[in-house]
Design a protein around this nucleic acid. Structure first.
Lengths: 236, 236
DNA sequence: CGTTATTTGTGCGTATGTATA
DNA sequence: CTATACATACGCACAAATAAC
């Protein structure tokens, strides 16, 4: 039936924090105090406190107690969908090329090392709204990956051999103006400003195994991120 | 002395996942199996599994077991520092103005409602690299907030009365070209492209209590985000 | 400076409930 | 119906950090 006890206690305490009964910097009542006031065991109360600790609302100090934290209003979560379901996309070309300085730098390439370039165009009603350039170091005999890249995400592809967990991605967000080359691909005027994401795929040895630039026109829309707590009755 | 038992077990299992011994979709050994193979109790083993569950590596299914998850390569964490320590900033003006349509929309304002506009300039060696416009609904008699805004973060200020936890911020990232007005403030040429973040501060009733636009020139640098796991020997 | 009370951290045992196959 | 697996909850003991005396 109903909610478990540790859940009720956690909700109660969380409510207290949200309503200002407990404020950042405050010391929460001790485990034993809470246990007796909620008529439960210390173990159960600990579990409730563990939940709040996990949510970042409180932090435990050995020998002192649980302190209410100051929320991190500058921490944002962003979902970056490579394959935006609102749009169609198609691979424009897959080629082996000599890398530009930017790409050479991004992938820490040795002199003479070539890269596979995969260019994808994102379309809204046949009008290009974004363009995607992926770079992977190329060695003679490597298979090209045009089919997978259409459906799977870039990080998973470049690290297909290793565990999907052992990959990290660093992203940068900036803007550029369309080059001659790009203005053709996006059928836009040259010098049109574009929102650009730069993604560096890093394997578990710390080696950069992939680099991607995505150019987005205004019609593609803005990127979205979110900051804040949302633990209202969260239960599976 | 050393690490606690539950920590060792968690590290062992995490290593197994990273090395591909357990792969996404796989069922982990049961709690009892792990407990006996690690010569510990079921409770301790549960704690280890709870850690990995928290990290998103595995998920528990009641009656079935723990399944190894597929990592979310599209989830990014971004720290957006309002007051970048690399730069100086100064408040340029604080005024009560009639809102533009964009601001009226962002704050869901009624007709005739005025707003406080706070404009801040971010400087690198006295050269403007970014500009910040904050909007707060204004009611007659409200105190202006120019002093606080210099040091504290926007979300905390607009919701100073309520609990700092009860605030959420939605962010959008896009670009614009400098208007006549902005080109003066940033001493840049008109039509210069600018990276723009739009932030909507929302209180716990779901009401938008603040809106901010930040315009960044190329010299300000790119925004940064990160995706992936990093649990190597994490312990306080 | 040690002693002591308080508080959290670690770990085990046990019992019972409930979902799954 | 039964065996297995996770979920909840209590009790206990001892370790370790902290603060006040």
């Amino acid at each position: 039936m109903g909610e478990p006890v540790y859940f009720k206690i956690a909700n109660e305490l969380r409510k207290g924090i949200f309503e200002g009964k407990f404020n950042p910097g405050d010391l929460m009542p001790s485990e034993n105090e809470l246990a007796s006031s909620f008529n439960s065991s210390r173990v159960t109360t600990r579990k409730s406190l563990g939940i709040l600790e996990n949510e970042g609302l409180i932090a435990a100090w050995h020998g002192k107690g649980y302190f209410v934290q100051t929320p991190e209003h500058n921490k944002y979560t962003m979902y970056f969908e490579e394959h935006n379901p609102a749009f169609k996309s198609k691979i424009q070309k897959v080629t082996v090329v000599k890398p530009t300085d930017e790409v050479k730098n991004a992938l820490s390439l040795k002199e003479g090392q070539k890269v596979v370039l995969i260019r994808r165009i994102v379309l809204n009603d046949d009008i290009p709204v974004a363009c995607d350039e992926k770079y992977i170091p190329y060695n003679r005999g490597d298979p090209l990956v045009e089919t997978e890249i259409q459906y799977a995400d870039f990080p998973e592809i470049v690290a297909a051999k290793s565990s999907p967990f052992a990959i990290q991605t660093d992203m940068e967000i900036g803007f550029e103006v369309a080059s001659a080359n790009l203005s053709v691909a996006l059928s836009c005027r040259q010098e049109e400003p574009l929102l650009v994401t730069y993604r560096y795929i890093i394997n578990h040895y710390g080696i950069k195994v992939g680099f991607e630039k995505m150019y987005m026109r205004k019609a593609y829309g803005r990127l979205r991120a979110h900051s804040g707590y949302s633990f209202v009755g969260k239960r599976k």
